[in-house]
Simulated scan of single mutants.
Amino acid sequence: MSALLLEARNLTKVFRLRSGLFAKPSGHVAVNSIDLELMQRERIGVVGESGSGKSTLGRLLLGLTSPTLGEVRFEGVAHTDRRSRDWSKFRMQTSLVQQNPLSALNPQMTIGQQVAEAVWVHRVADRAGALDRTAAMLERVGLSSAMMNRFPHQMSGGQRQRVVIARALILEPKLVVFDEAVSALDVSVQAQVVSILRSLWQELDLAYVFITHDLRIVRHLVDRIAVMYLGRAVETGDIKTVYEWPRHPYTRALLASVPTMDPRVRNVAPPIQGELDISKVTQGCAFRSRCPFAIDRCASELPELRQVERQHVACHRAEEFPRSIVARMEIAE
């Protein structure tokens, strides 16, 4: 059985807001009481609409943002207990891949310099060794080592994203957070990057958190999935179980909105109506104003995340939904 790599308990982040000089400070709860465990070499997908708190959660896990409440432990050590030397080791063992590769890369540095930079900074190898390591990593992500002397503007979007992935994996970290890593790419390039990520996961001793709004992509890349809505986890479970029998109305709506190429299949459920409503967070179920199955209890009582068969669901009516409202999707092994 794999060992526990990362653990988050009651993880909460509140951003303080102020609209004017004499205005009373207010707060936006971006992440609300999240519990998460990630084993070595495990792959977890975090899905939800923009504004659901996915990216903030990723930054909290990596210690790039400090939590308001709760804690994160990596290999048993809490982020709050780390000293400067511990943080340096932690940064070698973890990495982040962001959505926009062009903004993540320095336009004045060559590709080779940027991928090799972490090797130099952490003194893993000398200059020659770092460049050799960089060339090998570029080949592993499907790029020619001849591209080392190019600048970011001389590459396509798909090539730049591969460079960012190569930079994130150059030190062979134990944990990588992919934050919308393929959402800006066209479909054909997405498929290539997904194939690369699957191959690298098999080759490396790697666990990752894959953050996305695209349920069509995530099913090929993860073992477990967590669905977030306005900062809270509303459904979690292994990817096949959740896709075959979504128990939360929000998960069911997200899956129903995924397009299918099969002309014999129609999505029978309507897309999600309305917009994210932050005002609904303070009491009851935050999804109730957009949920066609809401009852009076949903407005007054917050549904806790509880076990329903093989997954955990935050819905008062989770047991009432039939097995599937969407076409079955093939889950890649």
Rank of each mutant, 00 (worst) to 15 (best):
V177S: 13
L102F: 12
A128D: 11
H28K: 09
T65V: 15
P263G: 07
V29I: 15
Q283F: 03
L38C: 08
S95W: 00
E42R: 11
Q99F: 12
D296H: 10
G284M: 14
Q159F: 04
M147K: 06
D223E: 14
H220K: 04
L64C: 09
A294E: 07
E49Y: 08
G237K: 01
V182Q: 01
R310W: 06
S103R: 09
D214W: 05
E139R: 13
P101D: 08
E319K: 12
T251N: 06
M261A: 12
V242E: 00
S195D: 13
A256V: 03
Y229K: 11
S300F: 12
R85H: 12
D179Q: 03
A30G: 12
M1R: 14
F151I: 06
L5V: 06
F15L: 06
A226W: 00
P101I: 05
M109W: 12
V176S: 04
W87H: 10
L60G: 07
A207E: 00
G142E: 10
L5H: 06
V234C: 05
C315R: 08
L36I: 14
G51E: 09
H79E: 13
R9F: 02
H213P: 05
R198T: 01
V187M: 13
P271E: 10
T65A: 04
V182S: 06
N100Q: 10
M137I: 04
E71W: 05
T260W: 13
I239M: 00
Q161E: 07
D205K: 08
A327S: 15
G20N: 14
I111K: 08
S66M: 11
F22Q: 07
E42F: 09
L138Y: 08
T56Y: 08
K13T: 00
I196A: 04
K13L: 15
S26A: 12
V218R: 01
A78H: 05
R41H: 13
W201C: 11
V124A: 10
A8M: 08
A294W: 03
H248Y: 08
M155N: 01
F22Y: 00
W87G: 09
A135D: 03
C285E: 05
K13H: 15
L305F: 10
E172D: 11
R167H: 05
Q98D: 04
A3T: 05
A30H: 02
A8Q: 11
L254I: 08
I34R: 10
H28M: 10
A78D: 14
A294C: 07
S88N: 14
V163P: 02
T94N: 06
A269W: 13
R323G: 04
L21A: 15
G231Q: 00
L276D: 01
V187I: 15
A299G: 10
L305Q: 09
I165M: 09
